[in-house]
Computed example of a mutant assay.
Amino acid sequence: MSPSRPFFESPSGELDTGQILYEAVPLAKLVAAVGAVALVPWLLGWLVLELVVLTPGIGVVFTLATQFVLAVGTGLVLMYVVVRANQLADG
Score class of each variant (00 low, 15 high):
residue 1 M to P: 15
residue 1 M to A: 14
residue 2 S to D: 15
residue 2 S to E: 15
residue 2 S to I: 13
residue 2 S to P: 12
residue 3 P to W: 07
residue 7 F to G: 00
residue 7 F to C: 00
residue 8 F to V: 09
residue 8 F to S: 00
residue 8 F to K: 03
residue 9 E to R: 08
residue 9 E to G: 00
residue 10 S to M: 11
residue 10 S to F: 11
residue 11 P to W: 04
residue 13 G to F: 12
residue 13 G to N: 05
residue 15 L to Y: 14
residue 15 L to F: 11
residue 16 D to I: 00
residue 16 D to A: 03
residue 19 Q to C: 01
residue 20 I to P: 02
residue 20 I to M: 12
residue 21 L to V: 05
residue 22 Y to L: 04
residue 23 E to D: 12
residue 24 A to T: 10
residue 25 V to H: 04
residue 25 V to S: 02
residue 26 P to F: 07
residue 28 A to P: 05
residue 29 K to R: 12
residue 31 V to Y: 02
residue 31 V to P: 00
residue 33 A to F: 11
residue 34 V to Q: 05
residue 35 G to Q: 07
residue 35 G to V: 12
residue 35 G to P: 07
residue 36 A to I: 12
residue 37 V to N: 10
residue 38 A to H: 09
residue 40 V to N: 13
residue 43 L to I: 13
residue 45 G to M: 04
residue 45 G to F: 09
residue 47 L to A: 14
residue 49 L to T: 15
residue 51 L to K: 14
residue 52 V to G: 07
residue 53 V to H: 09
residue 54 L to W: 15
residue 54 L to Q: 13
residue 55 T to I: 05
residue 55 T to P: 05
residue 56 P to H: 12
residue 56 P to E: 13
residue 56 P to I: 08
residue 56 P to Y: 13
residue 57 G to P: 02
residue 58 I to S: 05
residue 59 G to C: 10
residue 61 V to E: 02
residue 63 T to F: 11
residue 64 L to R: 04
residue 65 A to Y: 02
residue 67 Q to H: 12
residue 68 F to R: 00
residue 69 V to Y: 11
residue 69 V to N: 04
residue 70 L to G: 01
residue 71 A to Q: 05
residue 72 V to M: 07
residue 72 V to N: 04
residue 72 V to Y: 08
residue 72 V to I: 12
residue 73 G to T: 06
residue 73 G to N: 07
residue 74 T to K: 07
residue 77 V to H: 05
residue 77 V to P: 01
residue 78 L to W: 06
residue 78 L to A: 11
residue 79 M to V: 09
residue 79 M to F: 03
residue 83 V to W: 09
residue 83 V to M: 08
residue 83 V to Y: 13
residue 84 R to W: 06
residue 84 R to S: 08
residue 84 R to I: 06
residue 85 A to K: 02
residue 85 A to R: 05
residue 86 N to Q: 10
residue 87 Q to H: 08
residue 88 L to D: 00
residue 88 L to E: 02
residue 90 D to C: 14
residue 91 G to L: 05
residue 91 G to R: 02
residue 91 G to N: 05
